[in-house]
């Protein structure tokens, strides 16, 4: 009996300490991030951004993303001489120096090097106010992603989902993303080489690469 009397309080104290310390886990942070992400499978109501987007014409994208409908920026409002059919009436353009005044300077760097695209790969020849070809579909300039996506279908899928391209200004609120031509020049879609905006790092804040490498 005496032995038990001595052992029981010790056990109780020990158990109590175990409980106390196990309760301390995760004091510094949350639980595992991947667990948190897996647990969060219900749609959440997005907060409203305090700053509204700069007012630019938006169009609703014809394909919804996982969170429903979303918007992209209008392209037609960006094209200075839209509508194209005001010059391209179906007859030959006879305006003086039209080539210099309009878009005769465009050089195409799009497509394979040995088999580059032509104008009518993307532009509709029978209706100049549209992209696309008669054999595929007439595509509105505001919905150029439909045309780009016929070749770049992988990028388009990522763009709709959110892994390609970027949102305009806000991460929250109504989803508004840059359209393809917001970042890429359609006639020369690869970003050209240039100098970085700034240069990096004085020695004092660099990780000591010689020691580690």
């Amino acid at each position: 009996m005496n032995v038990f009397k001595k052992v029981i309080p010790v056990l109780l104290v020990w158990g109590g300490m175990l409980l106390a310390f196990s309760g301390c886990e995760g004091v510094s942070g949350h639980q595992d991030v991947m667990e948190l992400i897996k647990a969060a499978d219900k749609p959440v109501e997005s907060m409203k951004p305090t700053e509204a987007l700069p007012s630019a014409p938006l169009v609703i994208v014809k394909e919804p993303y996982q969170g429903g409908p979303f918007y992209t920026q209008s392209r037609k409002s960006e094209i200075g001489r839209f509508q194209c059919s005001s010059c391209h009436t179906g007859k030959d353009v006879t305006i003086n120096q039209a080539k210099e005044a309009a878009h005769g300077d465009i050089k195409l760097f799009h497509g394979a090097v040995d088999d580059p695209n032509a104008c009518d790969t993307c532009h509709n020849l029978s209706d100049r106010d549209y992209l696309g070809t008669d054999s595929i579909a007439k595509i509105d300039f505001d919905h150029s992603y439909q045309l780009c996506g016929t070749c770049h279908f992988r990028q388009k899928k990522d763009w709709v989902g959110g892994a390609h391209g970027k949102r305009v200004q806000n991460w929250a609120g109504q989803r508004v993303v840059q359209n393809c031509t917001g970042c890429h020049n359609p006639h020369s879609p690869r970003f050209s080489k240039r100098w970085p905006a700034t240069f990096s790092l004085p020695d004092s804040v660099l990780p000591d690469q010689e020691d580690e490498g």
């Binding site: 993303y65 429903g68 959110g162 970027k166």
Partner: peptide, 16 residues
């Protein structure tokens, strides 16, 4: 300029 950076809410299953 290249859209290499994705930011958002990890608790929103619809986020980018």
């Amino acid at each position: 300029p290249t859209g290499a950076r994705v930011f958002g809410n990890l608790l929103d299953p619809d986020s980018e």
